[in-house]
């Protein structure tokens, strides 16, 4: 499905944010990427849909080499890749419905998009997603009138209406309180599993990562230092990723909870 090979990114400033990162995902699983801030998690995610141009290496999605695409083909490829952001990045002055439907922009003509005249199936799908993320009746509310948790749920709906082959999620809960964070993660992971969409989630909260992911990748200083099951995330591994600290509570829960929460549910 997704094959990242020797991906390297050096910013113009000289920062080597990614060094030879290779990841293969060949089943629809939820992969959490953890690591201290500055490790290169956001850069990795943005290099996949090329919001950031990688310096070298390749990204292959369902047999297509994304790094080699011209701008027109890249746009076509992007419509199959959903993205969810830490700051939600909803268009503040548009309604919830317009924000969700904007996920279909890659599929409809300019004129239809301009007139907000989307195909019946798209509109129905938008209403269905609105219900799934628990925002029934909010379609005409402007995005800037929503709370953080509500905004992120709209963000999830916008990404999922793309019918994505891959979901890229950058710190979805970093701006939310703990309870809302769990709710948002649960909705996100449930929907991703239902649609069998492979999902990459950057997250700095080790607890959340272990609760919701099937696989965890640890990054540090632009390199992958861990790749394995949540249960394998021991004190030693966490020290490798984040450095010296008392990790006993985080590691202890890992052994007690082998299967991720929603994997069992679905």
């Amino acid at each position: 499905m997704l094959a990242i090979r020797e991906l390297t990114k050096t910013y113009d400033t000289g920062t080597a944010a990614l060094r030879n990162v290779s990841i293969t995902i060949d089943e629809p699983q939820v992969v959490a990427i953890i690591g201290p801030s500055g490790a290169g998690k956001s850069t990795l995610i943005r290099c996949i849909n090329r919001l950031v141009e990688p310096t070298s290496g390749s990204v292959e999605l369902n047999g297509e080499n994304l790094t080699a695409l011209g701008s027109r083909d890249l746009r076509r490829a992007r419509r199959h890749i959903g993205m969810i952001f830490q700051e939600y990045n909803l268009v503040e002055r548009l309604t919830v419905m317009e924000n969700i439907l904007s996920g279909r922009l890659g599929y409809v003509s300019f004129w239809r998009a301009f007139r907000r005249n989307y195909p019946a199936a798209d509109v129905a799908a938008a209403f269905s997603l609105l219900e799934r993320v628990g925002l029934e009746g909010y379609e005409n509310t402007r995005a800037d009138a929503l709370s953080g948790g509500q905004r992120q749920r709209v963000g999830i709906a916008r990404a999922l209406i793309q019918s994505p082959d891959l979901l890229l999620v950058d710190e979805p809960t970093a701006s939310l309180d703990p309870k809302t964070s769990r709710q948002v993660m649960r909705i996100l992971v449930e929907l991703a599993r239902e649609q069998k969409t492979p999902t990459l989630i950057n997250i700095h909260d080790v607890q959340l990562a272990k609760t919701f992911a099937n696989r965890i990748i640890g990054m540090q200083d632009g390199e992958i230092v861990f790749d394995g099951k949540p249960g394998q995330l021991t004190e030693k591994v966490l020290t490798d990723i984040y450095g010296e600290e008392d990790w006993s509570t985080e590691a202890a829960q890992a052994s007690g909870e082998d299967a991720p929460e929603t994997a069992a549910a679905s």
């Binding site: 849909n49 919001l51 992007r78 990045n89 268009v91 904007s102 279909r104 916008r158």
Partner: peptide, 11 residues
């Protein structure tokens, strides 16, 4: 960010 999100949809 708002512009980036729209670009990410393939617009």
């Amino acid at each position: 960010g708002q512009v980036e999100a729209i670009r990410a949809t393939g617009a």
